[in-house]
Amino acid sequence: MSDQDIERWTEEWRAGAPPVADLARMAKRERRLLTMWIAFDWLVGAGLLAFAGWLWLELRTPAMGIAAIGIAALTVVVLAFTIFNWRGVLQGDRASAADFLALALKRSQARLRYIRFGWQILAADLVVIAGAMALEVRDEGLDRLPGMLISTIVATAGAAAILFWWGRRERRRAVRLTAMQRAMQLETENQHE
């Protein structure tokens, strides 16, 4: 086998470029989308914090106070993760492929830890909400209990579905990254044998 093979293949390879759309325009579109997503995250976060503030200041019942603390705590945790996630999305792109894989795996494991933390937060939130409901029933009777129960079930189911879907996706990603890294390492080890 000679380098003539490489030359011949290179010629054939370069002749076969698939058609490409305007990449510069695509990059601009991606930037706009990303900016919109980040702005949306912050808007929703600000809205939730404002709502928690309103509950705290306007309704002034122990149940609503607890609910306000729960909402504010959850919002801060989610916003903190948003910053962590966006800042790291393209981290390590300038590293070599081997370093990039190691970094991507580390980030994937950090995301999995965060998802586990999310389940814990959700459980803690349910405890807080149960406390708020108990106070509400004690002070105001059963009138608002069905509404509170339904909204709690809907919100919990939504959050649990997101955490479940995201966790499954992230576990798959981690498995693939690990397998890719192992394939690279094995190939290198084989060369040394």
Partner: peptide, 18 residues
């Protein structure tokens, strides 16, 4: 093809960042 375009968009954006 559709996912290839997505990958290319991702690459173009990463280049802009880097």
């Amino acid at each position: 093809p559709a996912l290839r375009e997505e990958l290319l968009q991702d690459i173009a954006f990463a280049l802009w960042r880097a």
